[in-house]
Structures are given as C-alpha cells and as structure tokens.
Amino acid sequence: MSMAGGKRRPLAARLAGWRSWIQATFLLAWLDPFAIRMHTVCSPVFHCYSCPLATFACPIGVLANFSALHLFPFLALGTLLIVGAFLGSFICGWVCPFGYFQDLAARVPTPKFELPRWMGAFRYVVLVGLVLAVPYFLGEGSPLFFCRLCPAGALEAALPYTASLAAQGKELVWPNAAKAVILVAIVAAAFFTWRPWCTLFCPLGAIYSLFNRVSFFFLRFHPDRCRDCSLCRKLCRYKGRGENRAGELACIRCLECTQCRAITVGTVAGFGGKSSSDLQPPQAEGSLPTL
C-alpha cells in the first residue's frame, strides 16, 4: 500500500493488512496445540467442540444443547456478553476459524457476487429457530437440531472422524447427510461470494452484530472528513454502509474500510480516531486492498 502524502496510514488500516496472519494465529489457539481439552469453557468463536482438535466448547453448540436440556446457559451467555461488550463482531473478522476458512476459499480468483442485504436476517431466523426453539421444543434428537446441520461440525468433526475411521480400517460412520450437503453448499458458495455462512446463516455472528452499536470498541464515522467518494463502500465486501458503520449488522469489522480517513476505530469513551493529523487522504477509487 502506498502512503499518500508521505503520511502513515492509521494503525487500524495497517493492522488490516495483517488480518490473515492474525486469523491463522488464532486458528492455532483453537486447534488445541498443547492437547489441553478445556471443554468446560466456551470459546467466543464458531468452532465445533467435537473436532478432535478443539480446545474449547462451541458457544452455539452449548446454547443449543442447553436449550434442549431446558437449562439456562449462564456460562455461554456470559462469555458472549463479555466478548460482545468489548469487541462486537471483531471476533468474526479476526478470530473465528470458520470465517477464516471462508476467507481462504474466497481467495480463489472467481467472480464474486453480492448477496442482498436483507438476506442477513436469516441469521436471526437460524438463531431463534434452529439454535433455541427447535432444541427446546423438539429436543436434540430432532433432525433440525442445529448441530445436526452445522457445516463447521461437518468440516471440523464429522469428516475428520470418518477419515480417521477409514485410516484405521474400521467400519465407516458417514456424516449426517444434511450436514454434509450444507457444508458442500457453503464451500461452493464461498468461491463466489464473501463469507456466505457468516452473511446468511451464522447465529454467532447474529449475536455479535447486536453488540456493534454498544461495544467498547467500534468503528467511528466522521462526517466532517467524508468526501463522499464511496471508497468505504467499495472497500467493504459485505455491502456495509460506511456512514452507518458503527452499528452495521452485516459488518465483520475487518477494518478494510479504515483505509478511508473518514472511518476510524474508536471507543465509546471517545478515545481513538480523533486525531486527523496522521491520517491519509482518501485513496483513489478502485484501489482495493488484498486480504
């Protein structure tokens, strides 16, 4: 990236260039590198706890199972509230392994299509319907129980389990067909649109996005710096609107849009993003950064 005017880009924009590496680093943390299975603790990310390499329990899996058991999930909910209060959907863009997987798939140079913004409402249907209502009323044996449909579970747990059985020469246990079909559909879609699972279905992203308006750290839009060049919208792969960035439900806070000086990372207390002395002027249109 060039540094227009000889001034350094803001920290958030520079950090965005490292996002892929940061995602990879977090992936290692979720993959239980030290064989410490801490499944009594919920992670803040969408990572199946049935994965042989899962360090923590999946919060969505715990929410669904507790709903099936008619228990209130204090630990899982508390974890989501704490993380959401601080970061909102930063988790989606920087920490979540399934989001990272989709980001990697999106690197394949295929035509990318944008999904209608309204389709993001499906995430709340999944959250309320499949994660909470179906388990509560139909139990975990229902074929619509969320974990029986979860593509992350198929990718990280069911397929490795089947592969390990095959490697050991044992009788194969095939993954749930619905789960496998959904995984194939999501993987195929990830080549042609940005993060299809996160955009359309992810119940965890639906929860975190609710915190985007109230989290301590959030993206601040400065109308006085805006030249209406639409750079922020062009940089956003999730059809976000720069002027509403702070509360954008679809935003995964990848911080790509912070390359525009009108958007900065700030805190609710007003710290950060105030000084404009070290900000670059808006870049020329069409200079999209790479992930």
């Binding site: 204090f74 508390g78 989501l80 704490i82 915190f211 609710v268 007003g270």
Partner: peptide, 24 residues
C-alpha cells in the same frame, strides 16, 4: 458524556461477568 456512553456497554459487560461468575 463519556460516562453516559459507557453505561450501556458497562451494563452489558457487568451482566456478562455476573453471568459467568454465577454459572461457574
């Protein structure tokens, strides 16, 4: 103004901490 901005995230955070402590 800063304090008023901190109220909502502060309440959410407090609720989360209380929920984790109670659950644990």
């Amino acid at each position: 103004r800063i304090l008023s901005r901190l109220i909502v995230p502060g309440l959410v955070l407090a609720a989360g901490v209380a929920s984790v402590i109670y659950g644990a």
